[in-house]
């Protein structure tokens, strides 16, 4: 005997205590049950919130930003072009910029400076080149 052995009387006591306890648990009132359910839901919600990856918190922000961007694009699209308006006279500037940006024909440009100067003069005079 190890000094902790249960006597038959103890086993009967255990059994009756367990029965009384289980009976009282089964007869809990509805209000208490309801509060326990609410507490459980709160705990499970807290568990799910903790388990959710941090980046998921940014999903609504990203979606709102995307929606805003689409709305701006749709608002700008009908009627007028989305980019800056280029008037006549500005076209040449853009073409010249493209030549410079291409970067491969700059030597040719330097060799023929006189030609380009003439071309520019002709444009200013309005088809002067064709007449001359």
């Amino acid at each position: 005997m190890n000094g902790h052995d249960l006597e038959p009387h103890d086993e009967a006591l255990e059994r009756r205590a367990r029965e009384a306890f289980e009976g009282s648990v089964a007869r809990l009132d509805e209000d208490t049950r309801s509060r326990l359910r609410e507490a459980r839901r709160a705990a499970v919600d807290a568990f799910e919130a903790r388990r959710r990856p941090a980046w998921q918190g940014w999903v609504p922000v990203a979606m709102a930003a995307s929606a805003l961007l689409v709305a701006v694009l749709l608002w700008r699209a009908p009627g007028e072009p989305p980019g800056p308006v280029v008037q006549s006279g500005g076209t040449e500037a853009i073409e010249a910029l493209e030549v410079v940006a291409a970067g491969d024909d700059l030597d040719l440009v330097a060799e023929d400076l006189e030609f380009y100067a003439w071309l520019e003069q002709a444009d200013f005079d309005g088809n002067a080149a064709g007449q001359g």
Binding site: T32, L36, R40, V44, F47, E48, R51
Partner: peptide
């Protein structure tokens, strides 16, 4: 899944734990 298992576990122990 984890949440469902946890819910089941808590549902099982909540009343005895309260008593």
């Amino acid at each position: 899944d984890g949440a469902e298992t946890l819910d089941r576990f808590l549902a099982g122990v909540e009343r005895p734990a309260f008593r």
